[in-house]
Nucleic acid binder design. Structure first.
Lengths: 251, 251
DNA sequence: ATCACTTGTCTATTGAACTAGACAACTTGG
DNA sequence: CCAAGTTGTCTAGTTCAATAGACAAGTGAT
């Protein structure tokens, strides 16, 4: 069944990009097949052994590719049964009380927030305007990656006034939640003031963080959260994987 | 200088795509740097040792990346001296007498034509119209990759009437030139009747053959060649790497 | 001519990708 | 329950990416 020459096989060559591993090529190939709509949501993929035979490849290699698709949130694999396409989207309801962990928990998934990076910087005109600060005022900038069931959902850049929340990064890293971080600073109730939604495509950096290919669609969500007394607290620019999330706005 | 942990190093992570080799990431990164115009044509790149240090990587890995850039025709490496950016383009003059090997030889390079694939097929409406055949008539289809100094310049699909040139693929594979192939069939002088030029982007297949990234610009050149008596001989749809070729049309 | 610098080549080692095969654990349908 | 089919895991071996170091061969400037 398998050829003896691992190099110049037959049906591998049309994928084989120089410097890219086989399993990655297969994963990308299947992602295209799925995203182009050849499988419906919940449809069953062929068994690993069959896929392996079709590509002229070992089953372990296919398993690696499937693991990748699982990590990308495109496929769910069930032992003894098979692998199933998963293209349904998480409903992300935007309202006054928008809390990532609550939304994800309500949908029956496990929420996770990881701080990817942080720094102090002078406020841009935009950020200063939102937070009611002077341009150039010291602000804390956080880069946060959020995931549901280990599948990346969004990357968000959040700015807070450094005067009040200088150690926000340290606190967030420990508490792993914006809600709990603000709680730590004595802000118990905060509310969404406004939300601005646009769209775009992944750049190389976000694609890597979100485990997406480049040029996949993203939803860009800018927002401002305020305290109970209307005082601006934080402004955020989030990029949501449009393949995995739908934003719900009640009206 | 080098960290002891090969996994979670420092300045590697921003490149590291899962399932993509390190040298490929570095090559792609440098390609971007060059194509974005940060180096002029003929500019000298930093020595390999310095690049290696900057990426936190072994010099051999950088050498692999440079070899890749060489194969893509973006860089020329000179022993003992250094590596130099090569973004000048081959002038490809289109006229009545358009012969790839002559154009390349005149520019002082070594021409090469490789048959990538071939088959008989029924003529499409377009091909039939060009060659003066009935739709569905048997035609020979050749896929030819052309290179100058081992750097891919174009991929071309060529159609000939199967009635007259049934074994064209076999002949071309031996003689490695359209001119010589037609000579073998007794056609000594052929001339370009018309040429149609448009543009587009590489798909995955052409990108692989031309050793280009996907979404690089290509020049699409459709043409018809006729015998001395005006009889249509072959029609071609060529895709030229716009990064490496400029088409010259005299008027 | 010499010397610093750069690329080319060689050897050796480590770890990961991929192959190969076997068997356990689980699901599904009869 | 049983049997066929499918995924999960384990061991073993080969190939190749990447590291590490050393030295040869060539270039360019003083």
């Amino acid at each position: 069944m398998l050829t003896r020459t691992p190099r110049g096989s037959s049906n591998k060559n049309h994928l084989l990009a120089r410097g890219v591993m086989l399993w990655r090529c297969i994963a990308d190939d299947y992602e295209q097949t799925i995203l182009v709509g050849k499988y419906e949501n919940g449809a069953k993929l062929p068994p690993e052994s069959e896929i392996a035979a079709r590509y002229g490849v070992n089953r372990h290699t296919v398993r690696r590719a499937m693991a990748e698709l699982g990590a990308r949130g495109l496929v769910r694999t069930e032992r003894g049964s098979g692998s199933y396409v998963k293209t349904d989207k998480l409903d992300y309801r935007i309202g006054q009380r928008t809390r990532f962990s609550e939304i994800v928990a309500a949908a029956g998934h496990e929420a996770e927030g990881r701080l990817q990076g942080h720094r102090h910087e002078p406020a841009s005109e935009e950020v200063a305007g939102h937070l009611g600060l002077k341009i150039g005022a010291d602000v804390v900038r956080l880069e946060i990656l959020r995931a549901a069931d280990r599948v990346p959902i969004s990357v968000a850049t959040t700015w807070l006034s450094a005067a009040r929340y200088a150690d926000a990064a340290k606190v967030f890293r420990r508490l792993r939640s914006i809600t709990r971080t603000l709680d730590h600073y004595g802000i118990s109730g905060y509310a969404r003031k406004w939300t601005r939604i646009s769209a775009g495509f992944t750049d190389a950096v976000d694609a890597g963080r979100l485990r997406l290919s480049v040029h996949r669609p993203i939803l860009v969500v800018e927002s401002l959260d305020v305290a109970g007394d209307g005082e601006p607290i934080l402004t955020t620019r989030g990029r949501f994987a449009a393949d995995r999330v739908a934003l719900i706005v009640e009206s």
